[in-house]
């Protein structure tokens, strides 16, 4: 019993002694810091993603407090609201940036872009890119080994095993730019984020000549320039056999989408414009549904789109119904009616 008592006592004394020593050491070596840094760090999202250019949120907070001009600092995760709040707290002027979203500009799915060889090295885009062209004939497109997926701290980008391409979840994406940096082929771009995740963009980065592109991939931009001609806002430029839609100038009018002969211009979150009467009935974006609805012309177009969405998951995301209802004035009234009927129709057809 005595032994036990002594043991407990000794341990207690030791503990108290150690605590006292620790206290004095902590006092002695305390680092004086601007308390505002802590406050600002709390206001930041705390993702430590590095999207601001600093190693983590602490570094960003430090810079925000210490620098007089913070207009070149921006937290893509927190976005404009977060920056405004911090700027107000610090009494400085915040940078303003419109929301952006990572966009994968490659449409070379397994189906459209056949594999010509088998890569047997480390499954890393960076390693493969420094070795050779990739598993397909396209030297510019997505390699499909998922460096972007590994780089994403928000689980916002995932490989789709069916297409072999990464897909961004726009609701999770914070536009931190980690995937943009990770992609050795520079396939991913941060583009303006429209409401309801709508987007129109050229889903190809190949600078090869048209004939070369067509040989390697059925969904590539061949640089024909049709989209450039049809664009009323001067948003599209074709350079090095590649069209590019300037997200700042684009008004989502979608005329270019119908013009594109290869379907390289991708439309997200909206229905395509109905085709001119002379053109084939269904829009190019949904070739899979073409034969099913060829006869029913414009009226059935949205329905066809639905069917296509089922068959090819990439074609159009879920926001479609809402988008169809809110379709811009340009869309004919008939389409609205069709949109209402839409949910029933696929069952007849499929």
């Amino acid at each position: 019993m005595e032994v036990l008592l002594y043991t407990i006592l000794t341990l207690c004394v030791l503990g108290v002694l150690a605590a006292v020593i620790l206290y004095f050491v902590a006092q002695k070596f305390r680092v004086e810091e601007d308390p505002r840094i802590d406050e600002v760090e709390k206001m930041l999202p705390g993702a430590n993603c590095g999207g601001c250019g600093f190693a983590g949120c602490r570094g960003m907070a430090d810079a925000l407090v210490k620098r007089d001009d913070i207009s070149d600092l921006f937290c893509p995760v927190g976005g404009g609201d977060c920056m405004k709040a911090i700027a107000a707290y610090l009494g400085k002027a915040a940078a303003e940036k419109q929301p952006e979203v990572a966009t994968v500009r490659c449409g070379g799915t397994c189906e459209k872009r056949p594999r010509t060889n088998e890569y047997n090295g480390t499954k890393s885009c960076a390693v493969a890119a420094s070795l050779y062209v990739g598993e397909t004939g396209c030297a510019f497109g997505c390699l499909g080994f998922g460096d972007c997926v590994a780089a994403c701290a928000f689980d916002a980008i995932r490989m789709n095993p069916e297409t072999g391409l990464p897909e961004v979840d726009p609701d999770k994406c914070t536009a931190c730019g980690a995937c943009v940096k990770a992609c050795p082929k520079m396939v991913i771009e941060l583009r303006k984020k429209w409401p309801k995740n709508r987007a129109v963009y050229v889903s190809c980065v190949s600078k090869d000549k048209g004939a070369v592109v067509m040989k390697a991939c059925k969904a590539g931009c061949i640089g024909c320039g049709k989209c450039e001609k049809v664009c009323a806002f001067g948003a599209i430029t074709v350079e090095n056999n590649l069209a590019y839609i300037d997200p700042q100038k684009c008004k989502l009018c979608r005329k270019c989408v119908n013009e594109c002969p290869t379907g390289a211009i991708k439309l997200v979150g909206m229905d395509p414009l109905p085709k001119e009467p002379k053109a084939p009935a269904a829009p190019k974006a949904a070739p899979a549904a073409e034969k099913a609805v060829a006869k029913e012309a414009p009226k059935a177009a949205p329905a066809a789109e639905k069917a296509a969405a089922k068959e090819a998951p990439k074609a159009a995301p879920a926001a479609e119904k809402a988008a169809a209802k809110e379709a811009p004035k340009a869309a004919p009234a008939a389409e609205k009616a069709a949109a209402k009927e839409a949910p029933k129709e696929p069952s007849h057809e499929s």
Binding site: V133, G134, A139
Partner: peptide, 8 residues
């Protein structure tokens, strides 16, 4: 022209 590694 593509080289041995398929790069033009």
């Amino acid at each position: 022209v593509p080289n041995g590694q398929g790069l033009r």
